[in-house]
Design a protein around this nucleic acid. Structure first.
Length: 432
RNA sequence: UGUCCAGUAGUUCAGCGGUAGAAUACCGGUCUGUUAAACCGUAGGUCGUUGGUUCGAACCCAACCUGGACAGCCA
C-alpha cells in the first residue's frame, strides 16, 4: 500500500511512491509524453507521463482526459527545477474517478457575470482559491486574537423581532405569525454579553436589504463585533489597531503564496503592521477635505470620495474620531464637553478601500439612552432589555464592528467584495 | 434608485446600412520537457427581446430585459 498524500506535502516525499487524489486543471501532451496539471485543493503541480514507462492503456487514458476530470494518481515524487512548484510526480498509474466534459471555465479570460454564474466551479481556479485561503486565515487569526485576549464568543441571534439600528432596509420575514427581521448587527446583544462576560465578540452573518451595487457592498456579509466592559474608547482603539495589524501580519506570515497569486505588494502590507495608526478628529478631517478642495461641510457624513481622499493623506489606516451626533446611531456616548459630537471612530483603510471598522464608546446613562431612543423614533418597549443593561450595574463600555469582506479586499488588494466571500449575495444575484 | 457603458459562436471580442468574422474551447490528427505549449483540419450563430425607419437592419430609432462602472447608503 502506497501512502496517500496531499500535493502541498510533496516535498516531504521526494523519491517515494505515493498516491494522490486530484483534479486535472490542464493538459499538454505530445505523442510520447504528457503533462497533467493537477490540483487537490492544497496546491497545484504537474504529473509527467512518459509513454515508454507506462502501459498503452494508461497513456491512452491520459490523452482522453478533459479539464476537471478527477483522478487517482500513482507515482514517484521528484524534485525538478523545470516545474514551477519545484516538485512533480512521475506517474506510473492513474485511475479515472469522475469524468468531466465541456468544463465551462477555460484557462482564457471570462466576464464577471459568466464567472459568477459558475461560482460553484470558479472556486477551483487559482485566484478565488487564493482569496478564500486568505479569508480563512483572517478568520483563523480573528479567533486566535480574541481567544488569546480572554474574549468569549457570544453568538448574536440572526432572527430578531425589531430593527437594531432602527432603519429600513431590513430583510423582513415571518415568525409564527409575527414580524421578524434578519440581523443587521449583533452589537446590542454583544453589549448584554459584555455585562455578563467582560470581553466578548460575535462573528456572524449580517443582512442588509440595501439597493446598493458598488464594489464595497454585499447583501449578506460577515461581521466581527467585539464589545468590552469597563473600557473607554481610547483602549478600544488600541485593540482595534492591534487587531487589524495582527490580521495583516498573519496573512503575511501564512499566505505568502496566495499573495503572490494575487500580485499583492507585500511591502505595502508590511506598512500596515506598524503601530499606532493615525488618529484625526472629524473636525480636522473636514478641514483637510476643504483644504484639498473637496466640498465638505461640518455635519455631513463622508461619501466614498471623501473617505478615499482622507485615507490617501496617510501611509497607514487612519481613525476618524468623534463624528456629529446627528449622523450617528442613538447608542453612542455623548462627548463630555461638547454637545454636538459623540465618542466614536471609523477606521479608514488606505488605497481607496474606505471604512473597514466602525466603533464607539456606548452611552451608559439610562435616561439619556431612553431619550435618544425616543428621539430616533424607536419604540422604547422594544428596547426594554437593552435599557436594563443601564439599570443594573451600568459600566463604561466600548465596541466596534469590522466588516470581514472589506478587510479581505483591502488585504488582498482586489477591487470588489463579491470575490471575498465564497457565494456572494448581490443586488441581483442569489444563484448559485 | 440615479447617471453612464455594454449585450454578436460554449467563452472573450471584432464587425456599425448591402451574403455572419477572429481567437480560444470542443471534435479529429502530428509532435519526448510542456508552462495560456505548438502545428494541420472539422464543426459551431433567430447578432438580448419587441416594435419602428429603410428596397435592405447585427448596425439607425424607441421601449423593455439583463449585466457592468460610478454615486447615494453603509461594514
Amino acid at each position: 500500500m502506497v501512502e496517500q498524500i496531499s500535493i502541498i506535502d510533496a516535498k516531504e516525499h521526494v523519491n517515494e511512491q505515493v498516491k494522490i487524489g486530484a483534479w486535472l486543471t490542464d493538459k499538454r501532451s505530445s505523442g510520447k509524453i504528457a503533462f497533467l496539471q493537477l490540483r487537490d485543493g492544497t496546491a497545484y503541480f504537474q504529473g509527467v507521463l512518459v509513454k515508454s514507462a507506462v502501459s498503452e492503456e494508461i497513456f491512452q487514458l491520459a490523452k482522453e482526459l478533459h479539464q476537471e476530470a478527477s483522478l487517482w494518481i500513482y507515482g514517484e515524487i521528484h524534485q525538478d527545477t523545470r516545474s514551477k512548484f519545484g516538485y512533480e510526480i512521475e506517474i506510473s498509474n492513474l485511475e479515472l474517478v469522475g469524468e468531466s466534459h465541456d468544463y465551462p471555465i477555460t484557462p482564457k479570460e471570462h466576464g464577471v457575470d459568466f464567472l459568477m454564474d459558475h461560482r460553484h466551479l470558479w472556486l477551483r481556479s487559482t485566484r478565488p482559491h487564493a482569496i478564500l485561503k486568505i479569508r480563512n486565515e483572517v478568520i483563523r487569526a480573528t479567533y486566535q486574537f480574541y481567544n488569546d485576549r480572554e474574549f468569549t464568543k457570544i453568538d448574536a441571534p440572526i432572527l430578531t423581532g425589531s430593527a437594531p439600528e432602527g432603519t429600513t432596509e431590513l430583510f423582513h420575514t415571518e415568525y409564527f405569525g409575527r414580524d421578524a427581521y434578519l440581523s443587521q448587527s449583533g452589537q446590542l446583544y454583544e453589549e448584554a454579553g459584555a455585562m455578563a462576560f467582560g470581553k466578548v465578540f460575535s462573528f456572524g452573518p449580517t443582512f442588509r436589504a440595501e439597493e446598493s451595487k458598488t464594489r464595497r457592498h454585499l447583501i449578506e456579509f460577515w461581521m466581527i463585533e467585539p464589545e468590552m466592559a469597563f473600557m473607554h474608547q481610547e483602549e478600544s482603539l488600541k485593540i482595534q489597531e492591534e487587531y487589524v495589524a495582527y490580521l495583516v501580519q498573519n496573512v503575511l506570515d501564512h499566505c505568502d503564496y496566495e499573495l503572490d497569486v494575487l500580485g499583492r505588494d507585500k511591502e505595502v502590507l508590511r506598512r500596515y503592521t506598524k503601530l499606532p495608526y493615525n488618529r484625526i478628529t472629524y473636525d480636522e478631517a473636514i478641514k483637510m477635505l476643504q483644504k484639498g478642495g473637496l466640498d465638505a461641510d461640518w455635519g455631513l457624513d463622508f461619501g466614498s470620495p471623501e473617505e478615499t481622499y482622507l485615507a490617501d493623506q496617510f501611509e497607514q489606516p487612519v481613525f476618524v474620531l468623534n463624528y456629529p451626533k446627528a449622523i450617528k446611531p442613538f447608542y453612542m456616548k455623548p462627548h463630555p464637553t461638547r454637545d454636538d459630537v459623540v465618542i466614536c471612530a471609523d477606521l479608514l483603510a488606505p488605497e481607496g478601500y474606505g471604512e473597514i471598522i466602525g466603533g464607539s464608546e456606548r452611552a451608559t446613562d439610562y435616561n439619556y439612552l431612553l431619550a435618544q431612543i425616543r428621539a430616533a423614533g424607536l419604540d422604547p418597549k422594544e428596547y426594554e432589555w437593552y435599557l436594563d443593561l443601564r439599570k443594573y450595574g451600568s459600566v463604561p463600555h466600548s465596541g466596534f464592528g469590522l466588516g470581514l469582506e472589506r478587510a479581505i479586499v483591502w488585504i488582498c488588494g482586489i477591487d470588489h467584495v463579491r470575490e471575498a466571500i465564497p457565494f456572494p449575495r448581490l443586488l441581483n444575484r442569489i444563484y448559485p
